[in-house]
Structure formats: C-alpha cells, structure tokens
C-alpha cells in the first residue's frame, strides 16, 4: 500500500515537471552554461556582477529599463559593490559615485519647478524612456522589456539570457526575415509562416526586434577579463539574475540551516514516536 503510494507520488511529481518542457513555444532548448550561483550552495561572484553591471549600463540601459532597481541595491549584501566597511549601502562611496553620474528629475522645494539634480543612492535606476509610447517610437514599434525580473520571467532564465545574446545566427535559406526583425533560435515564437522549406524542418525559435547587442570587445572590463561575446553575455546574465533575485544567496544559506534543523528534528520525533508506540500492537 505504501509502496504503491510512493510510486504514485513519484509519478505525480514527474508530471509536475513535464509542463515545463513545452512552454518554450518552438524555441531551441537553452545552451548549457554554468553559473557560480547555481545549486544549493551557489554564491554570486562579485567580480562577475560588477562586469555584468558594466555591460548593462553601457549596452542594455540604452533601451532597457530596470525600474525595480535602485542605486543602493548595488551596495547591499551580495551585490556588485558591497563593501563590508559600509553595511548601510547609502554610505557606500562607489554607490554614491555611480548614482551621482546621473541627473535625476526632482522638484525644487522652494519654487516648485522641475529641476535636475545629481542622483543619490536612494534613487531608482534612470529609465531610458519616459513612457511606453516613447520606448516604442524609438525602437520601431517594439517595446524593450524591463529587465528587473527577467531571469525569473523566462524559463531557465540565466541560461536563456545567455543563449539569446550569443545565439544570433544567419537565417537559414528559405526563412524570410522581416524589416527590423532578426532571427534568433532561442527566441520564443513560431517561424512557420515565414518558412518556405520542408514542413517538417521548420527552424526553431522566432523573430526578435533587437539587433545583436553584443560584440567581442564591446565593453572593456576593468579587472582585465577578456571581453569576448560569451563572457559579456555570461556576466550580464549573472547580473540580471542577481537583479531579479538579490536575496538568492541569503535564501540558500537560510535553507541550509532550516534543512539541517528539520532533519534533526525529524530524527528526534521518529525516535520519540517509536518509543511511544513500542508496546502497542498496531
């Protein structure tokens, strides 16, 4: 009885995992790439986060907002510019310097006029466009999505971002790519309508309005890391993953303590249970 139950439970859990496979909508399975933050003991690599922030700031931020991020987040524990000497991220000099590079709109407290002032660590990341219509107008009608939670908003987020950025390729012969569009095998979509080749060999992926944003050597890394396309893609994917879930490291650390405690607790209760029931026929 119990064995059947366990078998059923395993079957049931296997089914829970199954729907994930079909969610991609015709895109190729993501590339295999490993990150330092994966696994139950994963940690963010601070140097990688700094490089990733640089890629975001110099390349992506031209079109993609990160509205849920503030400059102070960069200085919090686990973040790219965290310094144990400054536990309060508002005091972190790197964070203040980065924030001060940007002009932020504000109201003059005496005249009520709209003015611009240097950013402080409490300010949010500046958005490249004031609103959606402006964003679409500058990007041929396409809306560059906000990247704040992008690693959670796509299946296998970090790998997806890496695959998408490194996955641009020449469209195969027989695929008609529209004006302002680019073919990417990792982009969700269905290219059947634009495919004139054999019906059972439709290329995977879809059309994306974003031109390949990265090229080798585009962003120079201050720590001397070689700036290949793969490296930049990997670093920005790690940065976006951190931005999507800054508390990931804390979560896993808490989890280690919780699981240990629960396992010991279960052991104690098991022994207690056996002792209590020892003399009862059941």
């Amino acid at each position: 009885m119990l064995r059947k139950g366990i078998a059923l439970a395993a079957f049931g859990l296997a089914i829970l995992a199954a729907p994930a496979a079909l969610a991609a909508g015709g895109a190729a399975p993501v590339k295999h790439v490993e990150f330092s933050f994966e696994g139950p003991f994963g940690k963010f690599d601070q140097a990688q986060l700094q490089r990733g922030y640089k890629v975001y700031r110099e390349v992506c931020a031209a079109c993609h907002s990160m509205n849920l991020m503030s400059f102070r987040n960069l200085g919090q524990k686990g973040g790219p510019f965290f310094d144990p000497k400054y536990p309060n991220p508002n005091d972190n000099p790197y964070v203040k310097a980065i924030a001060a590079e940007y002009q932020v709109k504000d109201i003059d407290s005496e005249t009520g006029d709209v003015i611009e002032r240097p950013g402080t660590s409490a300010d949010r990341f500046p958005a490249p466009f004031p609103n959606e219509p402006a964003a679409r107008a500058s990007n041929g009608g396409a809306m560059p999505p906000d990247l704040s939670v992008m690693a959670k908003a796509r299946h296998h987020g970090p790998q997806y971002i890496y695959s998408l950025l490194t996955g641009y390729q020449e469209p195969p012969a027989g695929l008609k790519v529209g004006v302002g569009q680019h073919y990417n095998p990792f982009m969700a979509g269905d290219v059947t309508a634009a495919w004139s080749g054999p019906h059972d060999k439709v290329p995977p992926g879809g059309f994306i309005a974003m031109a390949p944003p990265l090229a080798a050597g585009q962003v120079t890394f201050d720590d001397g890391t070689k700036s290949t396309l793969e490296q930049q893609a990997k670093d920005v994917a790690a940065f976006i993953t951190w931005a999507s879930e800054p508390k990931m490291q804390e979560r896993k650390a808490f989890g280690m303590a919780a699981m240990t405690y629960l396992l010991i607790f279960a052991g104690l209760l098991w022994v207690s249970y056996r002792k209590i029931w020892k003399n009862v026929a059941h």
Binding site: Y261, F265, L268, V271, S272, K275, I276, W277
Partner: peptide, 21 residues
C-alpha cells in the same frame, strides 16, 4: 520504561526542538 507519558529524554528533546523551531 514503556509508559508513553513518561518524560523520557527523547520526548523532552523533541518538545524542545519543536519550541526552538
């Protein structure tokens, strides 16, 4: 030693673990 209501160490330990959780 088999009275289930006896305050054996293991039962106290389990109760303390519950409180700690």
């Amino acid at each position: 030693g088999d009275d289930p209501n006896r305050r054996d160490f293991i039962h106290i330990a389990a109760a303390v673990a519950a409180g700690g959780a």
